[in-house]
């Protein structure tokens, strides 16, 4: 019930976002009227904070697992105002790595001041950057998130163990951006009615939770006995559908600061 109501809300937001994608000009605010938005990504397993290696978890379907690596790309962040206008962050690429606390803090500089009511971002990397050649920063292939033999980025990487997995290991490298196995997903987690007020002297913070369990539940329930390794293809599409449609990313709260 709760989920379906949320889904409806996301749908509404997505439609709103789509309806106004043509108007990505801001309100001609002078360049000095900008503030900062901070995003905190908290990776969780259900209601528990994710602990690499030591944490022991159970999927909705009852499979036990541990997590040794959890990394994902967030890109193309957009903030929407109530009037339908949108701020599109330029060069917007972040790699969140559970093993690196600093990477969980995303700082958006030079956001035009205003009252924002929604956010949209891509889980993964857009197709353009997947084929764009040598890259730096979050997209540096040194980050172990780049496939060389079928070049392109791994959008979400989860590795771990499970007694239910055939060989004991879990390897989920969700990647691929070409039809019919495109795993690029764009989501618009709800602010739940809160307004993000960006001012020159206020840096509000959006606190997200990313729930690992959502990778394995949702439209396509995953049992590790039958699926413990996914590197692109149909199974990666199923997991991408799980974490996008099932709402892996939720806004826990917004600090006005």
């Amino acid at each position: 019930m709760f989920f379906s109501r949320l889904s409806a809300l996301w749908l509404a937001l997505t439609i709103t976002a789509f309806a106004f994608t043509g108007c990505d000009k801001d309100d001609n605010t002078p360049t000095d009227s900008v503030g900062e938005v901070d995003i905190e990504m908290e990776n969780v397993v259900g209601s528990t904070p994710l602990a690499l290696n030591t944490g022991s978890y159970t999927t909705a379907a009852g499979d036990q697992f541990t997590v040794t690596t959890f990394k994902y790309y967030i890109s193309n962040i957009k903030l929407q105002k109530a009037d339908g206008t949108e701020y599109v962050q330029p060069d917007s690429y972040y790699l969140v790595n559970q093993a690196d606390d600093a990477s969980k803090h995303l700082s958006l500089k030079e956001v035009p001041v205003g009252d924002y009511t929604g956010i949209t971002f891509t889980i993964g990397v857009d197709s353009t950057r997947n084929v764009a050649g040598a890259q730096t920063g979050a997209l540096d292939p040194s980050n172990s998130m780049f496939w060389t033999w079928d070049s392109g980025y791994i959008f979400v990487k989860l590795e771990g163990t499970s007694p239910q997995a055939a060989k004991g290991g879990l390897v989920f490298h969700i990647a691929g951006f070409q039809h019919p196995y495109n795993t690029i997903r764009t989501v618009s987690p709800s602010f739940n009615g809160t307004t993000l007020m960006v001012r020159t002297d206020h840096s509000p913070e959006i606190h997200f939770q990313a729930d690992v369990l959502k990778m394995f539940a949702g439209p396509n329930q995953v049992r590790f006995a039958t699926l413990s390794n996914s590197m692109g293809g149909a199974s990666s599409v199923q997991i991408a559908d799980n974490y996008s449609k099932g709402g892996m990313f939720t806004v826990a709260h917004i600090h006005a600061n």
Partner: peptide, 28 residues
């Protein structure tokens, strides 16, 4: 047709175990 850009192509032979079998980090 796996590699899709001339610039990122060398990463494949550099890291392929049956070709140069090296890591990008080690090369750097």
């Amino acid at each position: 047709g796996g590699p899709k850009n001339l610039e990122t192509l060398p990463l494949a032979p550099l890291t392929n175990p049956v070709e140069m079998d090296e890591t990008l980090g080690n090369v750097l």
